[in-house]
């Protein structure tokens, strides 16, 4: 169904725009939990993530010097990865609907109608 495909495309484009461009205007202040941890004196108990050396750690793509480009690119990669993982998961879940669900195209490709 093309209307659903249109909504999907539009939604994805909006998400990419928000993560890729609008995100550079986000507040850099500590978030609620960080602020409470600072005020109550336990922020120092935080340790580095095991993935602190990831190529996209802290929403910056390693090797891209321009801060805005690096951050925007990280956001775009995150949106695409989330869409891919989420989409795949939900297609698998939905196929598992099997006999209990409204299985009308068992094992078929998830073609939008």
């Amino acid at each position: 169904m093309t209307r659903t495909r249109g909504l999907l495309l539009g939604g994805l484009l909006l998400a990419l725009l928000l993560a890729g461009v609008v995100s550079q205007f986000a507040s850099g202040s500590p978030d609620g939990l960080e602020k409470v941890a600072e005020d109550k004196g336990f922020i120092a108990t935080a340790t580095d993530s095991d993935l602190a050396d990831s190529p996209v750690a802290d929403y910056a793509v390693r090797g891209v010097d321009d801060e805005r480009v690096s951050g925007g690119l990280a956001g775009v990669l995150g949106v695409l990865a989330t869409f891919a993982i989420g989409g795949a998961l939900f297609l698998v879940v939905r196929r598992g609907a099997g006999p209990a669900g409204r299985e009308d195209r068992a094992g078929g490709e998830p073609t939008p109608r």
């Binding site: 169904m1 659903t4 939604g11 993560a19 956001g75 949106v79 993982i85 879940v93 939905r94 998830p110």
Partner: peptide
């Protein structure tokens, strides 16, 4: 079935807005 890819989009959208 049309909800499955939409759910993936919702996840992607939440990721994007969590950056803001």
């Amino acid at each position: 079935e049309k909800v499955a890819p939409l759910a993936g989009l919702v996840a992607a959208f939440v990721f994007a807005v969590q950056m803001l």
